[in-house]
């Protein structure tokens, strides 16, 4: 399975959401990281044929996906960021309906719905109305619907948003389990999610993929070091203004800062191992200081 984006562009009025993007994906898990407004959702919507590109094209094994139509959608599974559902349907009804519009034969659909309800831990909630489910259960129903047709291409837009830590871990494991022999593109701004499960991480900014590679490659690409510094509380603002601070931990006698810099910010600063969050901050600068960037 090869999904290729050639000069892919999407403009809304004067705003370019995806800007002449060139990238090729094959089987494996791809984590798409970027701040809000980077163009992740627009890219995913184009990959799901929900939006037509303004320029360029997307091909699947050499064929243009919009031209493939139902042939492409047949091998596609999508969990959107704002996953909507039919509130009066039970989980079983909802999945059966999606199975029907995905073209599964009734007997196959029944079996597949049963399997996925079990796999996503929704057995007890199968007869519950969708509107009665918790946030985590809804997301699980969401991943179940995306998997109904056993898709070769699975696109998950912010699948862990709004989940508690337990649900997130469970969800990550589920995605890892489902990722075998298919192409999974996972978008998030929760860095630790992709760190655990993605083979390839794509950093997206202003509609472009600015960096792609394995977690280690991305970390190694940083030209600055990560330092742990212990400072007094009244010094924090000074360091925040001067350096990129990827973490801040208050203690009873001061504050421990995690600083990205070319050289040690203070003499007793300790060099520590960089992680993906540091990479995120390094490449996305001040914006990474937003509340969403730190897990």
């Amino acid at each position: 399975m090869e999904l290729k984006m050639k000069n892919l562009t999407k403009e809304f009025g004067g705003f370019t959401a995806v800007d002449h993007l060139n990238f090729t994906m094959e089987n494996g898990v791809y984590g798409l990281l970027g701040v809000n407004g980077a163009g992740k959702t627009t890219l995913m919507k184009m990959l799901c044929t929900l939006l037509s590109p303004t320029g360029g094209e997307i091909t699947c094994n050499g064929r243009e996906i919009l031209g493939m139509g139902a042939d492409y959608r047949k091998i596609l599974g999508y969990l959107p960021q704002d996953f909507g559902f039919y509130p009066e349907f039970t989980v079983q009804d909802y999945l059966s309906y999606i199975a029907a519009i995905k073209g599964l034969r009734p007997a196959v659909a029944r079996k597949r719905v049963r399997e996925l309800i079990e796999k996503t831990g929704l057995t007890k909630a199968a007869k519950k109305k969708m509107k009665k489910l918790s946030g985590g259960m809804k997301r699980r129903a969401g991943i179940a619907q995306a998997m109904l047709n056993n898709p070769k291409i699975l696109i998950l837009d912010e699948p862990t948003a709004g989940l508690d830590p337990n649900e997130r871990i469970r969800f990550r494991n589920l995605i890892s389990e489902l990722a075998e022999d298919r192409l999974v593109l996972l978008s998030t701004h929760i860095v630790s999610d992709v760190e655990y499960i993605a083979n390839q991480i794509l950093l997206m900014r202003d509609g472009k993929i600015v960096l792609a590679g394995e977690a280690r490659e991305l970390i190694d690409s940083m030209e600055e070091g990560v330092f742990s510094v212990f400072v007094r509380k009244n010094e924090v603002q000074h360091f925040m203004k001067k350096y990129k601070v990827s973490n801040l931990k208050s203690m009873h006698d001061g504050v421990e800062l995690r600083i990205i810099a070319k050289s040690p910010p203070v003499l007793d600063a300790g060099l520590v191992d960089a992680n993906l969050e540091d990479v995120f901050l390094y490449y996305f600068g001040e914006k990474a200081g937003g509340k969403d960037a730190v897990v």
Binding site: C48, L50, Y78, P80, D82, Y86, A100, I101, K102, G103
Partner: peptide, 15 residues
């Protein structure tokens, strides 16, 4: 309901 993405990305979603 926001169910449009799933609907239109399904095999029969546009026919």
């Amino acid at each position: 309901l926001g169910a449009d993405s799933v609907f239109f990305s399904a095999n029969y979603g546009r026919n």
